[in-house]
Amino acid sequence: MSETPREQHLADEDKHWLVRSSTIRKLWIAFAIILGLTLVAQLFVHLHEYFVVDAVFGFYAAFGFFSCVAMVVVAKLLGLVLKQPDDFYDEH
């Protein structure tokens, strides 16, 4: 396993194609289009309604997004208390 110079220090065109900023921009655009498509698809597909709100337009998108943000924030806050240095149990 050889240590090569890390790509962070290279010029953009010398990096692996996947991490060039032009590629990353394209990936974001593609991702945005796909996200849009999943919403557009709901116009053509009737979602079965079990609990009133679950058939509302964009419910799964919004619920997925916000529940994940909530979980990340909770993890962040809990981490303030529960995260400890790696050697926590090694002392004494």
């Binding site: 991702f31 996200l35 999943t38 698809a41 979602l47 799964y60 998108a61 997925g64 997004f65 990340v72």
Partner: peptide
Amino acid sequence: DHLVSQFQLLLFAGLA
């Protein structure tokens, strides 16, 4: 129905 709802859910979780 299931495909659309699951793609929405997961891809927007990915966005998050």
